[in-house]
Nucleic acid binder design. Sequence first.
DNA 1: TACACTGTAGAACGTGGGTTCTATGACATT
DNA 2: AATGTCATAGAACCCACGTTCTACAGTGTA
Lengths: 206, 206
Amino acid sequence: MKREMSDIQTRILAFIEEYTRTHGRPPTNREIGAKVEISSTGHVDYHLTVLEKKGYIERERKKSRGIRLAHQEPAGLRVYGAIAAGQPIEIYADQQESPLDLSARHTHEYVLKVKGNSMIDDHINDGDCVLVLPDATISDGDIIVATHMTDGANGAATLKRIYRERDRIRLQPANSQMDPIYVPRHEWDTEWQVQGKVTAVYRQFS
Amino acid sequence: MKREMSDIQTRILAFIEEYTRTHGRPPTNREIGAKVEISSTGHVDYHLTVLEKKGYIERERKKSRGIRLAHQEPAGLRVYGAIAAGQPIEIYADQQESPLDLSARHTHEYVLKVKGNSMIDDHINDGDCVLVLPDATISDGDIIVATHMTDGANGAATLKRIYRERDRIRLQPANSQMDPIYVPRHEWDTEWQVQGKVTAVYRQFS
DNA sequence: TACACTGTAGAACGTGGGTTCTATGACATT
DNA sequence: AATGTCATAGAACCCACGTTCTACAGTGTA
């Protein structure tokens, strides 16, 4: 059978990201080892070499803390695709022709460009970029990215505030002209899914 | 006359900022020394200690590359102070008592935190961060940071849209409840000054 | 004049930290 | 059973790097 690895390498990658964000610098091999309970620095080096070969990180050899997460913009943000803030729209990626593949779960924060005006009362405009954190704990009232999987299609994604009610989930737009979407509990987690929570908004003026 | 110090500490600070941005990690004392042509690592340490005492950086002692720029946003942008989006308020720096010194011209983009709601119709909230580009060409309708110098005081700063009219400048808030500020032409560039143009907005959810 | 403060230099010390090497066990493939 | 790959451990090596100390020169101040 297929062994699905929730690898130690995933944990290392997550730690590098978290440490870098919280400390403003990448961790050392020994700090990584301490976190993931690897006693040998050589062992950590081994995993880093693997991660480098797989393209997840870049390393500057012989430099202390010479680890850089790959695919990171100087600004720190990478735009993965677009997200509807109006009617759910087909998920699509920005710089590529291929539709956004959300089946491969994101483990890190990523950026989506907002289409539509349904979140306008929350001051999220058409064209803004939102920073999405997957695997975050969701509270009522959080702004989230929800996807609706239908038949063979790629599905649709939308940006809404989420409220859990008795027997349904309410996806509330921040636009007085628009009505909420109600999703029955039994469709939740099957047809509908939360892709992540919006942690920041970024807007650039031309 | 007295030559103002375009200090070596300023260069060190600028280098730390640039190196961190381009390399994804802070520089070592020796890397700093190489850049600013200081041959002694102890000497660099001395300047870092001073910078730390002045509040420009934070250090984690004994850790390699244990330098962090103070006043830094997660996105990697540097917050220089606050800016009023309502009535012009006293310019002040964020973490320090000393008022923000805008006389030393900024040469790069910097970040100000918005106080007030006067730009709410442009979807700039209280608490948002704006990215300010000095030395940009200003067009009518641009959102700009304007400062008003009065007597001995440090002056007040405000965030507004700018429109040049016949014999005056109109500083227009984006809030229907607020009135524009009109500045006579002859006061412009003397009492009033444009500090820069807003190029982006960044908002973080708690 | 003496003293304090800031800026500079050189060297030395001790630990931080990346790399390398050897050895070993768990699995999968041949 | 032999071989190969992946994951792990321990130790050693050696340069990287923060810190400390001494010394000295320029400047301002009591």
